[in-house]
């Protein structure tokens, strides 16, 4: 039946053309949807792939050393003994110092930008603070190594060693030669790097507080500080903690700046003035020189630990921030 086949291939009635067109559109829509979905799946794949590949790459180290990998302070490429205690300690201490410095300062900046500054000043100042986040970490590293560390070594650390080094309990933290590079320097540089992240989250969530709440408090005679401390902060508490965790996640994973100013020393010391190493800095320093499979595997295993820890910290941050977004009525 040649007649009917030609009429199917070349539609001539409007109805037939319409059907053909609709099926083609439906097919394209399905195709489009699948392409987009596979793009979205790539995001999922990137994250899972990073976890899986570092776990796979580190299997030799995990298998050989077991739990001792986490608690051993040995790191010796010659004898093939690797333990992650020193890098873990260095990562945690530098991030802790960074948080102790960055959180109050970020809070001060957010307070200034939302309650104190005249309105013409707010946009340029917050843009300037956010520029700090745009400076690449390698610039922080160079500045830290060539300018900031010598400054600290000449003018600050001798004083710290003299005055604080003899105090009971905390004295041991501040005793040591004024080298300039070390955990305290790295902590300070990290603090400067995370201040823009924490302060911009704090500023944004402070702005979500309903004006009538604040105005009610002002009407009762509260001072600005009392409004911020008793109204704004309790209202935004979970999101503020979320912002802090976001900064912590950044600080834990920061590589280049820390690599420059931490000194890459595999030694455990109580003093914050002494060089140390962090997980990220050890990987950056040693990975291309790691010739033995065990050394390389241990470095990848460190990467896995870092990824898991930052994943957890960032997930907590995200969940805490989501809570506020819901209450703020944006969802």
């Amino acid at each position: 039946m040649p007649d009917s086949s030609t009429s199917a291939a070349i539609p001539n009635t409007p109805a037939q053309r319409m059907i053909l067109r609709t099926t083609r559109d439906a097919r394209n829509d399905r195709l489009f949807r699948w392409v987009l979905l596979s793009c979205a799946m790539l995001v999922l794949l990137a994250l899972l792939g990073a976890v899986a590949s570092t776990l796979w790459g580190g299997r030799l180290a995990f298998h050989t050393f077991g739990w001792k990998f986490l608690v051993s302070d040995q790191w010796n490429a010659v004898t093939g003994q690797f333990g992650a205690l020193v890098p873990i300690w260095g990562t945690l201490m530098t991030s802790l110092i960074a948080m102790l410095l960055a959180v109050p300062i970020s809070f001060g900046i957010a307070l200034f930008l939302t309650e104190v500054a005249p309105s013409w000043m707010r946009a340029p100042v917050s843009a300037a603070v956010e520029l700090l986040a745009g400076i690449p970490s390698i610039i922080y590293g160079m500045w830290g190594l060539f300018v900031f560390a010598p400054f600290l070594a000449d003018h600050v650390y001798p004083w710290v060693n003299d005055k604080l080094g003899h105090l009971p309990l905390i004295g041991a933290l501040f005793r040591g030669p004024p080298l300039g590079i070390g955990m305290l320097t790295a902590g300070i540089v990290l603090a400067i790097m995370v201040i823009p992240f924490i302060s911009s989250v704090m500023r944004d969530v402070f702005l979500t507080v309903p004006t009538r709440l604040k105005e009610s408090a002002y009407a009762l005679g509260s001072t600005t500080w009392e409004v911020v401390w008793n109204i704004v902060l309790p209202y935004t508490r979970s999101a503020v903690v979320g912002g802090i965790f976001l900064g912590l996640g950044r600080a834990l994973g920061e590589t280049m700046a820390v690599t420059f100013v931490l000194g890459n020393a595999h030694q455990l010391s109580a003093s914050l003035l002494m060089p140390s190493s962090s997980i990220a800095s050890v990987i950056a320093n040693e990975f291309t020189e790691a010739v033995s499979p065990m050394h390389q595997s241990s470095l990848i295993a460190l990467g896995f630990l870092l990824f898991v820890v930052t994943f957890i910290v960032l997930a907590i941050a995200k969940l805490l921030l989501l809570g506020l977004a819901r209450r703020g009525g944006t969802e």
């Binding site: 995001v43 999922l44 990073a50 570092t54 994973g253 920061e254 990824f307 994943f311």
Partner: peptide
């Protein structure tokens, strides 16, 4: 699924970049 991907995307946004280098190195 959208929620999960959005969540993981935000984590990838702040994930330590050195680990992403390790990922590409391994694969």
């Amino acid at each position: 699924l959208g929620g999960v991907i959005r969540f993981l995307n935000d984590i990838l946004l702040s994930a330590p970049s050195i680990v992403l280098g390790l990922f590409i190195y391994t694969i």
